[in-house]
Design a protein around this nucleic acid. Structure first.
Lengths: 202, 202
DNA sequence: CACATTCTAGAACGAACGCTCTACTCAGTA
DNA sequence: TACTGAGTAGAGCGTTCGTTCTAGAATGTG
């Protein structure tokens, strides 16, 4: 009853979204063309516009949501890998640095480039970007809450943590060096220690 | 002796660079066209290619260097406005937040968008971006050195400070809120206090 | 079988892209 | 006066852009 076709169709749709997400991450919104997306995802223009009748904007918003999840998965697994919140943040920077190095510094944050280009001119995409950042902040705040931090403190720290991760990843990409990320990791660990619930900031 | 023409010519060149810098800041590299640059700077295509025979890339690199100086001026004046390094960093975030608010969140860092789009595909531009970030780090490190921080500590902190400022400005733009910047300012002040030469981190 | 629906396929459209090119203006020099 | 060199001006090059459109393949249902 149509499972096969629908599966195949779903595969095509997913392939389009995944390829778009990667291209947006590497070349930004204006630098990525629909025809490139179609050819690299082994789909045709007809298919792309069939699944995304809203055109490039709708497709980009879907791809940003995909990148949101991808980044969230990395963040979640790094945060869960350590009990101590400071060590967990260092694990985050280590994972980000590894991803950058392995991609020869091409695969940074899957959202940043598109977010910056579309500010104030593509509300759907900007919304998806804002939700992504909120989502990542929630993950960090959740970790801090689980470690006993006060709710307000956790939320504020999470904001700065995500900002710093974003900025350090940018610095690392531009400088082609892991150092900004590793340094940021150490400093973030020190920062959260200042606000730790067991007041003895070492 | 041709002073007038040369002045007028220099004015045209400067106008082109300034307009390009602003457009790159707001729309990124791929989103900014040479013809838009020409029309908004009241120059013609012929003039643009006369002053920048290397085309879009050469012009963009010059505009990035201009944005570097612009951002450095803001940073320098904010850092000089306070003796205490923590308060100086808060002043930086306050200035950045004011700039964002006044431009309805369109004028963020003049380098970031272009940097992300051209990573690994336009070496001249990427170099200019890397030098800009280094430049800003040097300003922050200089302030910390002047406050008595150890050289290594100052350099590392400066890296994280600039990363956090970049990331917080991005977060603020996407969320259309000053909060990420103000929060980051408080946290950066707390962070540098941890490494202050007078070891009594309050 | 016919029939609708879903998805694939790519030609074609007008607009915009970066860039090249020739023609021109105009002050300074010999 | 003739010439030079800097800068202005914009038509036009080939290409690519996002999008639209029609045609057909594939599958499920009556």
């Amino acid at each position: 009853m149509g499972r096969m076709e629908q599966r195949a169709a779903g595969d095509t749709r997913d392939r389009i979204v995944q390829v778009t997400a990667r291209l947006l991450q590497r070349q930004g919104y204006e630098g990525t063309g629909i025809k490139q997306i179609a050819s690299e995802s082994r789909a045709t223009l007809g298919s792309v516009y069939h699944f995304f009748p809203g055109g490039k904007q709708e497709l980009a918003a879907a791809a940003i949501r995909h990148g949101d999840q991808e980044f969230a998965d990395l963040l979640r697994s790094a945060l869960d890998s350590e009990d101590d919140p400071g060590k967990a943040l260092v694990a985050c920077t280590r994972e980000l640095a590894a991803g950058l190095r392995d991609s020869d510094w091409t695969d940074g944050c899957p959202v940043t480039a598109t977010a910056l280009e579309t500010i104030g001119r593509a509300p759907d995409i900007q919304l998806a970007c804002a939700q992504a950042i909120e989502h990542w902040q929630d993950l960090v705040a959740g970790k801090l809450l689980a470690c006993g931090f006060a709710a307000d403190t956790a939320r504020e720290l999470a904001s700065t943590v995500v900002s710093t991760l974003e900025g350090a990843e940018l610095s690392a990409q531009v400088a082609r060096s892991e150092e900004p990320l590793h340094t940021a990791g150490r400093h973030l660990a020190r920062l959260v220690a200042c606000y730790a619930p067991d007041a003895t900031a070492r």
